[in-house]
Design a binder for these strands. Structure first.
Length: 1011
RNA sequence: GGGCGAUUAGCUCAGUUGGCUAGAGCGUUCGGAUCACACCCGAAAGGUCGGGGGUUCAAGUCCCUUAUCGCCCACCA
């Protein structure tokens, strides 16, 4: 017997073999020259820092489903795998290791050595991630595995940076960044977490100075130079007598106070204050606008300005100290007032390590917490501290170093977003890029719509080094001259130079797009530059900069490769919703920019809209992907997001060990709904590994498939002679069950197609489950058991069984590839041709992964057949039901008489009486219209046919059963009568519904009457 | 504070444009070692669809409101 298959499906014994077979057959490998419609998915590259968890498992399972389906559809399909170098996260991990094992910092070993160590680390952990994907069954084209820091990606990064620089979209600027004083790097907003900290709100007196004599600060000078205009034209005259009395700082003389009070949680930052802001509509303070205060401890004079955005008069004292260099809101004030009459200064008081610098005067060198203590002490001594009130606030901390972040003014590189964002917004608005579910587009549009400039420099060593060399010159003229000379010697188009002015200093910045196109004699351009005193920027790029290029950089861009021509735009991106902004939006921007012929940008929304409307067919070739499908978030048992940083991630390999890869995949796929996140309680095994009962669902399904296949294979083998002399089978030769099964099969394939086309993975898994377990196993297989033993009947049944199994395996292969592939080989051994000519086409294939997707003839879908079969099912269930209620022994054959409602029903039931007898363990006495009820028989019904079962002796059980049915009917009748009694219903509801209700009522009444 | 989502059986979730006596799996109860499968088979119990309004002939489904939970964004000196 060919079914030496074990009774229970053992994933471990087949998975490795199947996977190796696919690899050996190069089944994952794609060639752009091959025929077939392009289908491409690029993997969301997992961070090299961590092992994969179940969140990755669901994401990659869904991708694998689509790519396997596409392959079976005959598309030229490729799935590009890869890993992200994850800048700060990776460097932090290796630095931590360095500290723990060797007690060294990165400065001890230097840039090159550290980067070398990170590469070693990457090798080890990157391989682990790839092997996890392989255990999961991912059919990635491993020959095309990329790393965001490899040479191919680096080339794309340099080229992109260069183009952006040349187009003026990259600029250098001083910005307030989130500064990690420990790692001494800027970090992005998403790398910050907030902690509640109990501190104080200190209220500090700032004395008001009448007049402006004695002031010497720049801002005042500038204002004087500009003619001493009134700072705030909206200032109402004679304020101060307003109805709100000032509780604080009322001076002895007159009605006006001689000082104002500000409140702060960070008193040490007052050393960098450059203004005090009030609301122009606040009568308590608006009279003071334009005056000055003497900043305590430093004795600098700083202006009182109006800023209605910053200051909420209802909050606190109504006066806000402004420290532009150390607070994001205050920085915004500085920006708002730049170039205006009341522009203010910007003073940085911190060093990059978080200590106070020379601008902090006598506090220089102190750490920020010490400085704070000292400032409070000194203010207290001077009697300027009004109040110290307990206060709880949230302080941002670095995700990596766990230390408090500091808003810090620093030189950074930025990408100017607006011109890139407009086209990216428009392609989504116009539906060239579609989100699934659609609502996620909102987040994308909202975020991108802000067009906030993108800070791309990171003070790290691990990453793409910024391809800029710079040198300072004494004067603008000198710098300009050098620029001109350089432009002569730079024949190559791939380099650009620009003059940069900062704080009155002049720099020449040179961006090298392609360092290799220098003079062949003198060598690389960078070498020449460095010889001339230019130095390369020490910073590296934000990881997202390289990730943003992923859909084209992985395919070889900027080279015009066959891969790129074939597979970009890619077909669909599947990702988690938390990186819609950081990643998805940027990919859309950069693909449009890089792949568009003329590095297209748009200054206005209108311009973008017009261009895209007019040239849709062209633009559609420049998007990175046509669809973005968002997969659910995996939560742990407590409902918290599974993530590496939280440490609650579960390794999919542990689940695969206990349940099998297919069970994991199938279960996760049923959970991939559009709305719900997936809550996955896990439990610890004695050996410390995790597992979860949730995956029993998938494991059971696989086991069912395994055993149904064992049954089918054993029976097909014995029917083999019949199969090989197979003659054409006509629909008319088939039994009701055969035709029903084929109808259900065809319907299921259609539903699966629709589900996958709309990224409803849960629907796909669901229809597979229903068809295979419920229809195929529970009904069809049970019905054909005796048929298969009769050679005459088996001549029809066996081919149908073989075809149905063949199609089922194809249908389910994308979600459960290992088990279906393994069974496929066995099926190939037993029956070579499973086609039913004209009905089911089943082209032979050695490997299922390369087989054709099922395409049973649509004409097989037959509502009439399905309805007739339902009558058969209901009849059987009704008899089983009564048997169970009466506790009839399973083996006891009961006598049944069926009084059919009409001739067609009688005909169906009569034709299938053997099936009824078999599945309901009964003997049919009579099946005909209006058959008389035998004496002492219990009555039940199905499809309005009366079913009489003789020999039921449990009177109590019967009484109960009848009573319950009577109650149900009474309820139903009341509902239906109510509906029909409603004049509106009769008048307005569609006639077929009214008719249906009337019929239901009549049937219910008739049944009740018979009870 | 703004945006999005969720709330349906003990648990985890489906429920397509409003039109069923609201479904599934697990769990529970009853019956079963039947020769594909006990990771199984047959059957049953279990829900006024978070609360309150409204629209409609008809609401789990649409609108308003409210409560609770989750996520994203912006964050109060």
């Amino acid at each position: 017997m060919s079914t030496e298959l074990p009774k229970t499906y053992e994933p471990a014994s087949v998975e490795a073999t199947a996977y190796q077979t696919w690899l050996d057959a190069k089944a994952f490998h794609a060639d752009p020259a091959d025929p077939g419609e392009s289908f491409c998915i690029v993997i969301p590259p997992p961070n090299v820092t961590g092992a994969l968890h179940l969140g990755h498992a669901i994401n990659n399972t869904l991708q694998d489903i689509l790519v396997r389906k596409a392959r079976m559809d005959g598309h030229n399909a490729v799935w590009i795998p890869g890993i992200d170098h994850a800048g700060i996260a990776t460097q932090a991990v290796v630095e931590k290791q360095l500290k723990e094992i060797e007690n060294k910092t990165r400065h001890d070993i230097g840039r090159e050595a550290l980067v070398q160590r990170i590469w070693e680390w990457k090798q080890q952990y990157g391989d682990r991630i790839l092997s996890q994907l392989q255990r999961l069954g991912c059919s990635c084209d491993w020959d095309r595995t990329r790393f965001t820091l490899d040479d191919m990606c680096a080339r794309a990064v340099r080229e992109t940076f260069f183009k952006l620089f040349k187009d003026g979209l990259i600029f250098r600027g001083k910005r307030l960044v989130n500064w990690d004083t420990h790692l001494q790097t800027s970090i992005s907003d998403d790398e910050i977490y907030y902690e509640n900290v109990k501190t104080f709100l200190w209220h500090i007196k700032y004395p008001i100075v009448e007049g402006t004599e004695g002031k010497s600060d720049e801002a005042t000078k500038r204002r004087s130079d500009e003619g001493g205009r009134t700072p705030s034209p909206t200032l109402p005259q004679g304020g101060g007598s307003g109805s709100i009395p000032s509780p604080l700082g009322v001076g002895e003389g007159g009605g006006r106070p001689d000082h104002l009070v500000v409140a702060t949680t960070r008193p040490e930052t007052m050393l960098g204050d450059t203004a005090v802001a009030v609301n122009s509509a606040d009568p308590r303070w608006n009279w003071a606008i334009g005056k000055f205060v003497k900043l305590p401890l430093t004795n600098r004079l700083i202006p009182i300005i109006a800023d209605d955005i910053l200051v909420d008069p209802k909050f606190g004292t109504g006066c806000v100290k402004v420290t532009p260099a150390h607070d994001p809101n205050d920085y915004a004030v500085w920006q708002r007032h730049q170039g205006k009459a009341d522009q203010i200064d910007l003073i940085n008081i911190l060093n990059s390590d978080g200590t106070l610098n020379e601008n902090a005067g006598t506090y220089k060198g102190m750490r920020r917490d010490l400085g704070r203590k000292k400032v409070v002490e000194d203010l207290t001594h001077q009697g300027l501290l009004v109040k110290e009130e307990p206060y709880e606030t949230q302080v941002g901390h670095s995700d990596r170093s766990k230390t408090a972040i500091e808003p810090y003014l620093s030189d950074q590189w930025f990408v100017h977003m607006a011109p890139l964002a407009e086209p990216a917004l428009e392609v989504v608005r116009q539906g060239l890029v579609k989100f699934h579910p659609e609502r996620h587009a909102q987040q994308y549009l909202a975020w991108l719509g802000e067009k906030r400039d993108w800070p791309i420099s990171r003070q790290l060593w691990w990453g793409h080094r910024i391809p800029i060399w710079s040198k300072e010159f004494g004067t603008r003229a000198e710098a300009t001259t050098i620029m001109q000379e350089m432009s002569k010697s730079f024949e190559c188009e791939n380099n650009a130079a620009r003059l940069h002015e900062s704080d009155g200093r002049y720099f020449v910045l040179v961006c090298l797009g392609d360092d290799t196109c220098g003079d062949l004699v003198t060598g690389k351009i960078s070498t020449i530059l460095e010889r001339d005193g230019f130095i390369q920027d020490p910073d590296v790029l934000d990881t997202w900069f390289s990730s943003a290029l992923w859909p084209h950089s992985t395919l070889g861009w900027p080279e015009k490769t066959p891969d790129l021509a074939k597979w970009n735009p890619t077909t669909v991106l599947i990702t988690a919703r938390d990186i819609i902004t950081l990643w998805v939006a940027r990919m859309v921007m950069m693909n449009l920019y890089n792949m568009g012929e003329n590095r297209w940008t748009s200054q206005t929304a209108e311009e973008a809209k017009t261009k895209i409307s007019d040239r849709k067919s062209e633009i559609i070739r420049h998007i990175p992907f046509a669809h973005v499908a968002i997969n659910p978030t995996i939560l742990d048992g407590k409902g918290e997001r599974m993530s590496k940083s939280k440490g609650n991630g579960v390794d999919p390999v542990e689940i695969i060990d206990t349940h099998g890869a297919d069970a994991l995949r199938f279960t996760l796929t049923t959970m991939a709904t559009e709305t719900q996140d997936v809550r996955l309680p896990v439990k610890k095994l004695p050996d410390g590994r995790n597992t979860s009962d949730k995956f029993d669902f998938g494991r059971n399904f696989c086991n069912k498939l395994w055993n149904a296949s064992r049954f089918a294979l054993a029976n097909l083998e014995s029917a083999c002679p019949l199969l090989n002399q197979q003659s054409t089978i006509n629909l008319a030769d088939l039994s009701l069950a055969d035709r029903w099964l084929l109808s259900r099969l065809a319907r299921t394939v259609a539903e699966a197609n629709a589900a996958l086309a709309s990224f409803r993975f849960d629907h796909y898994a669901h229809v597979c489950y229903e068809f295979f377990w419920r229809d195929f196993c529970d009904w069809y297989v049970e019905i054909v058991k005796p048929t298969l033993k009769d050679p005459r009947q088996a001549a029809i049944t066996a081919p149908v069984l073989a075809a149905a199994l063949d199609q089922s395996l194809r249908l389910m292969h994308p979600v459960i590839p290992f088990i279906t592939e393994t069974i496929w080989w066995k099926l190939n051994d037993v029956v070579t041709d499973r086609s039913l000519p004209g009905l089911v086409n089943a082209p032979a294939a050695k490997l299922l992964i390369k087989a054709a997707w099922p395409t049973p003839s649509a004409s097989l879908i037959d509502d009439r057949v399905e309805k007739d079969f339902t009558l058969l099912q209901e009849t059987i269930v009704a008899i089983r039901n009564v048997r169970n209620e009466h506790k009839v022994d399973l083996k006891r054959v009961v006598q049944v008489t069926i009084a059919a409602i009409d001739e067609p029903s009688a005909k169906i039931l009569l034709a299938n009486q053997q099936t009824i007898a078999l599945l309901a363990t009964c003997e049919l006495q009579a099946v005909k219209v209006a058959a008389p009820a035998p004496a002492d028989a219990v009555r039940t019904s199905a499809g309005n046919c009366d079913i009489f079962i003789a020999g039921m002796i449990d009177a109590d059980a019967e009484k109960q059963r009848v009573a319950k049915r009577g109650e149900d009917l009474a309820k139903l009748i009341a509902t239906l009568e109510g509906r029909l009694g409603n004049a509106g219903y009769i008048a307005k509801a569609p006639p077929h519904l009214v008719e249906q209700t009337q019929k239901q009522l009549a049937d219910a009444k008739a049944e009740l009457a018979k009870l």
